[in-house]
Write a protein that binds this DNA or RNA. Structure first.
Lengths: 216, 216
DNA sequence: GTCTATAAGACGATAGAC
DNA sequence: GTCTATCGTCTTATAGAC
């Protein structure tokens, strides 16, 4: 089940997927207002009217793309093992988030754009889903602090540090590239970011690295 | 001197300023593509053609807005006292950045939008200016690390933590509000963010609070 | 399901009276 | 400087043949 309550592409609709992928690229590059159905059609190599056959309107198409993006997020970040130690959970979370950023930069940028736009195009249902997960993690962090298993810190601010920093890196072709004077971020760049972020977050929490993920 | 080499509104052009302010609000809300000159005109309470009298094109108008935003940034964040201790410089930087976010949320959001869009509408000159300041701070941090005045950490990642987190908060009317279930962020919210962020950054650097700014 | 052609309207920009 | 009226273009969406 996806966020919309339907299976993602019950298989057998290649044309639809083709258009969906093209739309993702278009919306990533130009945002909702800037996106052009003609370009989506060209990229998907179908006539423009064909896009409207599968998706009634531009808005419907964007909904479909956003829904996929949110599903991706929730699926990957869902499980939190409350029994595990904080350092492990936080490190796993960070590495997972950086990995998502690396694997799906387009989805990540659309997500960020939508956030900056105040979720103007996101349904109430999807909004609730994204919020629920964050609150869950925050509650866990509060428990750990109460149990003196980590230094006191505002849970939401800590989550935002992780979220904002990885999000910030999602934008290949932006200030990050501009500062590093590179054209694309490599696998190594992302590993270094993950390592660095883990180090920083653990220091914030006064935790020692577990060292099960990588050798530093 | 501003980023464009001219004084900001040499005073005496109320109409122009009126339009500029309206444009700022419009671009903040809808982004460059989504912005509508008609709405800007309505908000500024002038006929649409009047907008075109003061600004030749939509692009020109956006340039003017962006230029003001970048000037604001550079003016407030420019001075770094290399002789001062790291904790003081970092704390001052954080509090200044949070304050800017509080005072100019519109400017901040436009800045963030432009960043996410890959600075598509920012002139080369302005790009260079924003980059220069970041590199300057990074160099200072590297010096401090070499002099063992703080724990080793990737300077850019540290800056991004600060930048991304405060930026993330700039979006009143977004996920932050959604999570906190509030309609606007108060002065106190921003103070708490600044305190929290200072604590986190100083822990990352292994530094003690100086306590000259606020009593924690 | 696929595609061409086109409708219907919105938009940025301008001409030209005052 | 200000404003009305309008031009030309672009864009979403649809009608209707195949």
């Amino acid at each position: 089940m996806t966020a919309t309550g339907r299976k993602i592409t019950p298989l057998g609709n290649r044309r639809r997927d083709q258009i969906l992928r093209a739309a993702e690229a278009e919306f990533e590059k130009y945002g909702y207002e800037g996106a052009r159905i003609q370009r989506i059609a060209d990229l998907a190599e179908v006539p423009k009217a064909n896009v409207h056959y599968y998706f009634a309107s531009k808005s419907t198409l964007y909904d479909a793309v956003l829904s996929n993006v949110v599903d991706l997020w929730n699926a990957a970040l869902a499980p939190i093992d409350a029994a595990a130690d904080p350092a492990t959970v936080l490190e796993d979370y960070i590495r997972m988030k950086v990995e998502l950023t690396r694997l799906y930069p387009a989805a990540t940028r659309i997500f960020a754009q939508e956030m900056l736009g105040g979720w103007q195009h996101l349904s109430e249902h999807l909004k609730r889903e994204t919020r629920a997960w964050t609150e869950h993690l925050a509650t866990e962090i509060e428990n750990w602090i109460r149990q003196k298993r980590m230094l006191p810190v505002d849970p939401f601010h800590l989550i935002f540090v992780i979220w904002a920093t990885t999000q910030h890196y999602a934008e290949s072709g932006t200030q990050v590239k501009s500062i590093y004077r590179k054209n694309s971020l490599t696998r190594q760049d992302h590993d270094r970011l993950a390592d660095s972020l883990v180090t920083m977050v653990l220091r914030i929490c006064g935790l020692e690295p577990v060292g099960h993920g990588r050798n530093t």
